[in-house]
Amino acid sequence: MKGKVVSYLAAKKYGFIQGDDGESYFLHFSELLDKKDEGKLVKGSMVHFDPTPTPKGLAAKAISLPLE
């Protein structure tokens, strides 16, 4: 699924993505496929991810940034 980063707290390594389906997904650095892309996780960045339901809500897994 595609989505847009709505927040990312680099110090805490987490944030949120708004998916194309309108839902909010929890984003964690550990799910970023290329850790070098962390600096690109800023508000408004477009990402691809696997939407995954968890006991705490919806989460983004296997997060990647589109090729530039």
Rank of each mutant, 00 (worst) to 15 (best):
M46P: 11
L67N: 13
K2N: 10
P66T: 14
L67W: 12
K40R: 14
I63C: 04
K13Y: 04
A11P: 08
G44W: 05
F16T: 06
V5T: 03
G22S: 05
K56M: 10
V5K: 02
P66A: 15
V42W: 08
F49W: 00
P55F: 09
G39K: 14
K36N: 13
F16S: 04
V5E: 02
Q18N: 08
T54G: 09
G57C: 04
L41F: 03
Q18G: 05
V6W: 08
D37F: 08
L33F: 05
F29H: 08
H28C: 08
L27R: 00
D50C: 14
V5A: 01
A11K: 12
E68M: 13
L9C: 15
D37A: 09
F26A: 03
L41N: 01
H48Y: 15
K13G: 10
I17Y: 00
S64M: 11
L65R: 05
K12Q: 09
K61M: 10
E38L: 07
D34H: 09
G3W: 02
F16W: 14
L33C: 10
K43G: 06
L67T: 13
Y8Q: 01
K61A: 08
K35N: 07
I17W: 01
G57I: 03
A10M: 11
A62K: 14
K40W: 07
L65C: 08
L32K: 00
F26V: 04
K43A: 12
I17T: 01
S45P: 06
M1C: 08
V6E: 07
M1T: 06
G15N: 00
F49N: 00
A11R: 12
Y25A: 00
L58S: 05
S7G: 07
L27S: 01
Y14L: 04
K36D: 12
T52L: 13
P53V: 14
D21E: 03
E38Q: 06
S64F: 13
K4T: 13
D50L: 15
K4S: 08
L58H: 07
Y8S: 02
V47E: 01
V6K: 13
I17S: 00
A59S: 09
G3T: 01
L58G: 04
D34W: 06
L67C: 12
F29L: 10
G3S: 01
P55L: 10
F29T: 06
G57Q: 03
L32F: 04
F16K: 05
D21Q: 03
Y8P: 00
P55H: 09
D20Y: 10
F16P: 00
D20I: 10
I17L: 05
L67K: 14
G19E: 00
F16I: 07
F16M: 07
S7L: 14
G15V: 03
Y25V: 02
S30C: 12
Y8L: 08
A59E: 07
G44S: 04
E38H: 08
P51M: 05
P53R: 14
G44A: 04
G15P: 00
H28V: 06
D20H: 08
H48M: 15
H48F: 15
E68D: 13
D20L: 09
G39R: 13
K56N: 10
Y14G: 03
E31W: 07
L27P: 00
K40I: 05
K2T: 14
S30T: 10
